[in-house]
Amino acid sequence: MKWNLRWVAAGRDIWRPSDLKTAFEAVGFTPSLSKVCALWSQAPVTVRLDDLDMICAGLECTVADLMEAESLATEESGRQDGQQAVGGSLRSGSGGRPVPKQSGGKGGLRRLPPN
C-alpha cells in the first residue's frame, strides 16, 4: 500500500505535522505530536480503523485518497535474497491443493487425510 498522507495534506494547504495535528484536533482527534510526526514521515505498519476514520475527517478525504494499492509486480520485485510469500508458488498441475510427499522407506506416496 502506498501512503499518501502528505499528498492529501498538501492539497489542504497543510505543510507541517503541527498543522496536521491542529486539523485533527478540529474534529476531536487528539493524537500526540510524535504520533502525527510518525504518520507524516512514513507509512504506518498498522492503523486503527477509528483513527483512520478521524484522519479522513480531519483532512476531508476518503480512505482511497490516503491509501493506494500498489501492483503485485512492484512488491515481488522488492523481495530480496530469495524471500517469497508463504504459498507464493504452487507446483504445476497441483491446482493449489497439497501434494503428498514421497515416503523415504517404501518408495510410495503417503496418502492425504480424507476431506
Rank of each mutant, 00 (worst) to 15 (best):
M1A: 14
M1I: 13
M1E: 13
K2D: 13
K2R: 14
K2S: 11
N4Q: 14
L5D: 01
L5V: 07
L5E: 01
W7C: 07
V8K: 09
V8C: 10
A9H: 07
A10G: 15
G11T: 00
R12S: 02
W15H: 15
R16P: 01
R16Y: 10
P17L: 05
P17V: 03
S18C: 11
S18I: 12
L20W: 00
L20D: 01
K21E: 05
K21Q: 14
T22R: 13
A23G: 01
A23S: 12
F24S: 03
E25Q: 09
E25S: 04
A26G: 03
V27F: 04
V27I: 08
G28D: 06
G28R: 10
G28Q: 08
F29H: 09
F29T: 00
S32C: 10
L33A: 13
L33N: 08
L33T: 10
L33W: 05
K35V: 13
C37H: 08
A38Y: 07
L39K: 00
W40K: 05
W40Q: 01
A43W: 00
A43K: 05
V45P: 00
T46R: 08
T46F: 07
V47I: 15
V47G: 03
R48S: 12
D50M: 04
D50W: 09
M54Y: 02
I55G: 00
C56T: 05
A57D: 08
G58D: 09
C61W: 03
C61A: 09
M67L: 14
E68M: 07
E68F: 00
A69V: 02
E70I: 15
E70N: 09
E70L: 12
L72I: 14
A73E: 15
T74C: 05
T74F: 08
T74Y: 10
T74D: 11
E76C: 05
E76D: 08
S77A: 10
S77E: 10
G78L: 02
G78D: 02
G78K: 06
D81W: 01
G82T: 11
Q83N: 05
A85I: 07
A85R: 15
G88D: 14
L90S: 14
S92C: 11
S92M: 12
G93Q: 09
G93L: 09
S94F: 06
S94T: 08
S94L: 09
G96P: 04
G96T: 04
G96S: 03
G96W: 08
R97V: 07
P100Y: 06
K101V: 12
Q102I: 06
Q102S: 14
S103D: 11
G105E: 05
K106S: 14
G107S: 12
L109D: 11
R110G: 11
R111C: 10
R111H: 13
L112H: 02
L112V: 06
P113A: 13
P114R: 13
P114F: 04
P114M: 04
N115T: 07
